[in-house]
Design a protein around this nucleic acid. Structure first.
Lengths: 120, 120
DNA sequence: CAGAATCCATTCGGATACTG
DNA sequence: CAGTATCCGAATGGATTCTG
């Protein structure tokens, strides 16, 4: 609410490192900080158009309310698209939007690293 | 608490995509999901050894308690190192550990993308 | 300067039960 | 199948005050 969305950190290091780190606050970052958000992007990105139950399986222990609200968040923000087919039994498929795929590409290296680096 | 840390999503797409998305839950992911965590990693990575007040400036609106508890979290988890110099006035410098730098490399593309993609 | 301590409002997420 | 609705405890984050 009271955050300042434009706060680029100037690269002031003396090591010659050219990294420029902008640190966006709010917006997408808040969304990504909610539970399972990053993982959902990656899972949907990995197993293509996917149904709700497959997602639930993947996240085994997560409650349905949490997952579905996160899916809704992500869809509302334009990272996932939700396609509902008028069939019986009902079928719903989630897939990444273009925006979502772009995000996923940035997320994958992170999650992969976390996965293989988790040493606790 | 009740999460299952090992839940690789099998790549079951028929598009020939070879992306394998592991979705780590808990551990580092929970830490990264806390406020300013990712941004802190990137900021410290970008402006090298940095003092507390510089960080506060960068995050302008964030409360000191939040920032310092996040810094503590990250230090405790081994992503930041905190060096305190016995001077007057006291000086403390934060920098990334090796682990932190590895993480930072995966975070930077993400934050950069978010920064330039934020279109709301 | 660099926080720690305290207190509190809000949010978040899980359990459970129910539905088109 | 794919959720939604409700309820509730836990956790998070902010304001403020104080300190070595």
């Amino acid at each position: 609410m009271t955050n300042n969305p434009e706060r680029p950190a100037k690269t002031a290091d003396s090591t010659g490192d050219t990294a420029t780190c902008y640190c966006p606050i709010g917006g997408v970052m808040e969304l990504l900080s909610r539970r399972y958000a990053m993982q959902l992007i990656c899972v949907v990105g990995a197993i293509g158009p996917v149904r709700y139950n497959e997602i639930e399986d993947t996240f085994g222990d997560a409650s349905s309310s949490t997952l579905s609200s996160r899916l809704e968040d992500l869809a509302e923000a334009g990272y996932l698209s939700r396609e509902q087919y008028a069939e019986i039994p009902p079928r719903v498929e989630y897939k990444l939007t273009e925006k979502g795929e772009q995000l996923c590409h940035r997320l994958e290296p992170l999650l992969e690293w976390v996965e293989e680096h988790e040493e606790q």
